[in-house]
Write a protein that binds this DNA or RNA. Structure first.
Length: 300
DNA sequence: ATAGGGTTATCT
DNA sequence: AGATAACCCTAT
């Protein structure tokens, strides 16, 4: 009987992206037969993969460019027959649909970041992170793995990109640009000029829906967001301070570095409530890195 | 088997 | 009502 609509889960989406990364876009059958992904994608057909990839491309690409205008135009043209484009500025230029360029600075960013980035305390990677979170459009925010995958997908990955990303995420969170809730990052409501509402996000994971009956007020969302900011920041601060203190005690040995990395990975793999563990690991990692090679971290 | 266009279901 | 995502159909 009717299969209503089987929405794609995050795992399936991740598997699809990984599959495309491995085998390339278009090799849907190959991806589907790969034992790595056949487990999570067993309920999907090659056509499903193709369609999903198309949807992902559409949503991830030109939101803020002219792709939206194109789609909007096409939508309107379903009924309207005439195309009145008086200026018709650049529609004919053909879409060189690559905004995935000129990120190269981040590889050598360790040394030449100070050249241009004096006014803003924003380096290239900061913008990348914000862009990733924005384009991912995940209602509950995006976790580090997803953000890393997005950036690695679109751009090219430096060797120790994961560590750099961790450091940057932490910095952005501490400065209030990002909000971290349950291992997921959102863009702070300070820049809530995006569109729509700040969106009250349920702290709980899973796909439960919120009762949409509580739309009584237009002022509460802002307050709620503010509270969330304070809460998240206070939480992190406390955890980080404690973790930093503990980390300094063990930071003497080089082995601690590997240990911290292991802890970070495990904390992330386990979806459990290991927030403290991860905070500890990150703090320890940062501390050690600061002590050993301070120039590895991009300063702005 | 894949790409593209078209249709329906779901959410705001 | 509009927009988006899943689904369906067909030509190559």
């Amino acid at each position: 009987m009717g299969a209503p609509k089987q929405k794609w889960t995050a795992e399936e989406e991740l598997a699809l992206k990984a599959g495309v990364r491995k085998h390339g876009a278009g090799k849907w059958r190959t991806i589907l037969k790969d034992p790595e992904f056949s487990g999570t994608l067993c309920l999907r057909s090659n056509v499903d993969l193709k369609d999903k990839w198309r949807n992902l491309s559409v949503t991830a690409n030109g939101w803020g460019s002219r792709e939206k205008a194109r789609i909007a135009m096409k939508r309107s043209q379903q009924i309207v027959k005439h195309d009145n484009s008086p200026k018709a500025v650049s529609t004919s230029i053909e879409d060189s649909d690559d905004e995935i360029l000129d990120i190269k600075p981040i590889a050598v960013s360790s040394e030449n970041i100070h050249v241009t980035g004096q006014k803003r305390s924003f380096s290239r990677i900061d913008n990348l992170i914000l862009e990733a979170i924005t384009n991912l459009k995940e209602p509950t925010g995006s976790n580090k793995t997803t953000i890393a995958m997005y950036i690695e997908d679109q751009y090219w990955p430096p060797p120790d990109f994961t560590q750099l990303l961790s450091a940057k995420l932490k910095t952005l969170t501490a400065s209030g640009r990002l909000i971290k809730v349950k291992r997921r990052y959102r863009i702070a409501p300070t820049s809530a000029f995006l569109k729509g509402k700040p969106s009250n996000i349920s702290i709980y994971e899973g796909r439960q829906r919120e009762p949409s009956g509580s739309v009584v007020d237009d002022f509460t969302p802002l307050l709620r967001s503010q509270v969330d900011v304070e809460l998240a920041r206070m939480r992190n601060m406390t955890a980080q301070e404690a973790a930093a203190a503990a980390a300094q005690a063990v930071a003497e040995a080089e082995a601690a570095m590997a240990q911290a990395e292991e802890a970070a990975k495990e904390a992330e793999a386990a979806e459990a409530d290991a927030e403290a563990a991860q905070a500890f690991a990150e703090a320890a990692l940062l501390t050690i890195k600061n002590r050993k090679t301070a120039d590895l971290i991009v300063r702005a």
